[in-house]
């Protein structure tokens, strides 16, 4: 009698989770697919138009640029976050005084919201009253308004993003460093092998799986970022920082182009799916 009941219990237990995931995640995605192949007239779905929305999107240089901008932003952010994160993890792995305090300070930007990060940097870089502008003047350099220079704005965006996200790879890599068995290094030390060699042949290979996880997770979150660019640059100046994710937001909620916005959402979803598949593979490689 009991045996018949047992297989039933786990399904009951996971039912709420399934309902939530289906209703709030998968169904909307299917709905987006539906919207992407229809016209939209002020929030009502119109006729079926096949791939017209996609064609319109892909023949628009603005969209193509926004994907290029996303690639630049993601590559810059992820590259720098990993580089700094790894360096900081290596330094924090040494026994230094105030190590915990240093670590905590580096973690603080990680817990503030993207909106706050954007505002903090806007005010810091303010050309009229900000300390960065004043510091540059003191150094005899010209007054700088990086957020109004198309070429610099992207760097500011990347910098602000690295500032708020560097703690994530740092924490993961530090944990991974501490998991490398000490005897690997001891052998190298006995043989008098220089640091650069140990780093290349012991540390890096041991960190590889974690590095991979960091790259994928950071890429995913950077690729889908909206709040930070929306508040920091608004996509400008001159579309210089008009990331694909931000463009999707504006296409839908400033221009009310639901059809093309949904097509863009599906394209973003595909990129996410590829990144997720990469993530799952890297997880499997890790275990």
């Amino acid at each position: 009698m009991r045996a018949a009941r047992i297989p039933f219990t786990p399904y009951l237990l996971i039912l709420p989770a399934i309902v939530l995931v289906f209703v709030v995640a998968l169904y909307p995605m299917a709905y987006a697919l539906h919207l992407s192949v229809h016209t939209s007239e002020l929030m009502t779905t119109g006729a079926f138009v096949g791939l017209a929305n996609y064609r319109a999107l892909l023949s628009d240089p603005g969209t193509l640029w926004s994907f290029a901008a996303s690639v630049i932003f993601v590559a810059g952010s992820v590259g720098l976050a990993i580089l700094f994160g790894l360096s900081l993890a290596l330094l924090l792995n040494e026994k230094v005084r105030f190590r915990t305090a240093f670590r905590a300070s580096i973690l603080v930007p990680w817990i503030v919201s993207q909106v706050v990060a954007a505002m903090v940097w806007r005010w810091l870089l303010n050309a009229d009253y900000g300390p960065v502008a004043s510091g540059l003047l003191n150094l005899g350099l010209p007054r700088l308004d990086p957020l109004s220079e198309p070429r610099l704005a992207m760097w500011v965006l990347i910098l602000a993003n690295v500032w708020r996200s560097v703690a994530f790879p740092m924490v993961l890599l530090l944990a991974a460093l501490q998991g490398i068995p000490e005897n690997l290094y001891r052998a190298a030390r006995v043989d008098g092998i220089p640091w650069s060699m140990t780093f290349r042949h012991i540390t890096l290979p041991m960190l590889r799986p974690t590095l991979l996880v960091c790259v994928v997770i950071l890429s995913l979150s950077d690729f889908n970022i909206v709040a930070l660019p929306l508040v920091l640059t608004g996509g400008g100046p001159l579309d210089a920082t008009d990331l694909a994710s931000l463009r999707l937001y504006r296409e839908a909620f400033s221009d009310y182009q639901i059809g093309t916005a949904s097509a863009l959402a599906i394209l973003l979803f595909l990129v996410n799916a590829v990144l997720t598949a990469a993530y799952l593979r890297s997880m499997r490689a890790r275990t």
Binding site: A32, L35, L220, N224, L248, Y249, A261, A265, N272
Partner: peptide, 10 residues
């Protein structure tokens, strides 16, 4: 893993 921005519109 499927992040928020793609599901924003629907």
């Amino acid at each position: 893993m499927m992040p928020g921005v793609a599901s924003l519109v629907p």
